[in-house]
């Protein structure tokens, strides 16, 4: 079970939360001018990375607020939570990715 750090309530168990998909999806600025491809891109297309993923969660059974979470989809490691409208913790994410690449290297002598 994930222990998710709500920006307001602190760490709580996963059943109190609902997942809201990828974060920072921008709605087309001029909907009337958008093509079908642009709409499809906005509505359906999502990245599916193995590694750090920025996603939305809502603390449904707690304070009922939406927030963003940076989570590693391969290890389930939670890098940090940040409120709606705030910028993702890019430096922390970059550091984590750096250490992840180092640890993925094969030890000496292993082919």
């Amino acid at each position: 079970m994930l222990l998710i750090p709500c920006p307001w309530c602190g760490e709580r168990d996963e059943p109190e939360f609902h997942h809201g998909g990828e974060a920072h999806i921008k709605r087309p600025l001029e909907p009337d001018q958008s093509t079908d491809e642009e709409w499809a891109e906005y509505i359906f297309m999502r990245t599916n990375p193995k590694g750090v993923f920025l996603e939305r969660w809502v603390h449904q059974s707690g304070c009922r607020r939406w927030f963003n979470l940076a989570r590693n989809t391969a290890t389930n490691e939670i890098i940090g939570a940040y409120k709606m409208g705030e910028k993702p913790p890019i430096s922390t994410i970059a550091n984590k990715q750096k250490t992840a690449t180092v640890s993925n290297k094969k030890p000496k002598g292993v082919k």
Partner: peptide, 10 residues
């Protein structure tokens, strides 16, 4: 005060 679950009930 917290909002939470008690035996699955909110």
């Amino acid at each position: 005060v917290v909002n939470t679950h008690l035996s699955h009930a909110h």
